[in-house]
Amino acid sequence: MHWKLHWSERYRGAMKSSWIGLLLCLAAPVAWIATLDQPFLRRTGLAAFVLCALGLALLWQGKTKDGRKRSSVMLGLGAAVTLLLVLGGFVLTRLPAAGFSQRFASQDAKAQAFELPDQTGQSVALSGVLEKGPVLLVFYRGSW
């Protein structure tokens, strides 16, 4: 009787840390999205990775205390979320910026002339606008 009670309580405590750990890992992507307005946090994903670290620590603690398969699976899930965040944040969302950097690497690189229609259909030549003064060109990904 006594040892049974002892073990079930031990499991329960361990499962609790596993669940909290998993929740922290799942909250990490949300934390990254919520901090996109902060340039440093947006670039580093720090808020998300702090949550992941805490979550993984709890999941590890749960696994070592519990020792059952369920806690190992939960640890695996937490690790998968962390890995996806690393991949998504730093690998999959990398943009091909090398072409631009090469083109404008030299100090005396000049912008190529072009002529394109504006939102009213009126043709706009860069050279014509430059005659009036400096120009800030903004390339953006478009609206969808």
Binding site: A111, L137, F139
Partner: peptide, 11 residues
Amino acid sequence: VPAMLLLRSDA
């Protein structure tokens, strides 16, 4: 790719 260039009048 999102980018910005500031050009002087001589491009």
